[in-house]
């Protein structure tokens, strides 16, 4: 039995077309064109207890909308969701007591107060007894190394420190499901890394189920065994991130450095040229042709250095996005 089950979940928003100009706004008063945007359409997936799953997708692809439906902030247009036995948007207290959502750009901390006041507030909201509260607080502050920052006003903390406090505030009640929406947004590389390490460790220690959205590939590559890639409201990939490229015809990248200038035309027969500047070239080559072609090239050209690489994951994902890129936003007039 999966801890989260999502079945044919859809969400569409109504919005009105806004036209500029006084005359057009007057016209709009009388008759407005109502448009529907499908933010999420018929997605289904299941997540097991203790899994750590990443949601990947470009801006406006529907990952945050999905997360909001999973946490009960939004009502779906259709479809079903079951999160450890509850329907999120019924917003039952028992449900709220056992999960947590962290949004990178929204803070639940009181800006002018030391962080521990906000933590204490959450202790009361989540009805935690003194003993377990102190225990968890000690543990989390230890892990994130912020023990001596608890008494400092939140507005005086750095962005990274603030995010750590935000995480503590969200984990203080030991939720069994955690939703993280862009938890590392705007942070410097070291802070990003610290937070990633923490999340990994926390997930292993507590067996909490974690769903994570992020812009940063590194976040997801590092943390999540399983990635769900969403584009234009649909799931386009569900599986291990490393294996995204297997979806495509297996290709390899060859990087060449020459000792003498080699014209572009001389290379065209051997594969698709990605980059070329005379002394260097990057080419995409079919996997089965790799051996044959590299032999010929090594014989023919004055090659100084020769490397074979996999196609980077980013590039694979981009091709995934572009696959349905032809279709535009589905706008329907009502």
């Amino acid at each position: 039995m999966s801890i989260i089950q999502v079945e044919r979940l859809s969400k569409s928003f109504n919005y009105y077309e806004k036209e500029l100009g006084f005359k057009k706004s007057l016209k709009n008063l009388v008759k407005r064109k109502s448009l529907i945007k499908e933010a999420v359409s018929e997605i289904s997936f299941a997540i097991e207890q203790g899994e750590m799953v990443g949601f990947l997708g470009p801006n406006g692809s529907g990952k945050t909308t999905t997360l909001k439906m999973l946490s009960g902030i939004l009502y779906p247009t259709s479809g079903q969701v079951n999160v450890f036995g509850y329907v999120p948007w019924e917003r039952k207290k028992e449900f709220k007591m056992q999960f947590s959502i962290v949004m990178g750009q929204k803070s639940q901390l009181w800006w002018d107060l030391p962080a521990n006041e906000s933590l204490y507030l959450n202790k009361c909201i989540y009805e935690i007894e003194d003993k377990p509260y102190n225990l968890v607080l000690d543990e989390l502050t230890e892990m994130l190394d912020v023990k001596d920052l608890l008494n400092i006003q939140v507005r005086r903390l750095s962005l990274g420190e603030r995010m750590k406090m935000e995480l503590i505030a969200s984990l203080i009640h030991r939720p069994q499901v955690i939703f993280l929406d862009e938890p590392t947004i705007g942070l410097d590389l070291i802070s990003q890394k610290r937070i990633r390490e923490f999340l990994k460790y926390y997930n292993q220690q507590t067996k909490a189920t974690v769903i994570l959205t992020s812009h940063y590939m590194a976040d997801i590559e590092d943390l999540c065994k399983r990635t769900i890639i969403i584009n234009q409201g649909k799931i386009v990939y569900d599986g291990e991130l490393r294996r995204v490229n297997e979806l495509f015809h297996a290709k390899k990248i060859i990087k060449l450095h020459f000792t003498d200038e080699v014209p572009r035309q001389a290379l065209t027969d051997y594969g698709a040229i990605m980059e070329h500047d005379g002394m260097n070239a990057v080419m995409e080559v079919d996997k089965h042709d790799l051996q044959r072609l590299s032999k010929i090239m090594l014989d023919r050209f004055p090659i100084l250095d020769f490397t074979i690489e996999d196609i980077p994951v980013e590039q694979g994902i981009e091709s995934l996005y572009q696959k349905d890129g032809v279709k535009h936003e589905s706008l329907a007039e009502v």
Partner: peptide, 13 residues
């Protein structure tokens, strides 16, 4: 407007 309401909504209060 800021979406802080979203956060409050998930609290058991």
């Amino acid at each position: 407007r800021n979406g802080t309401l979203d956060l409050y909504m998930t609290k058991p209060l």
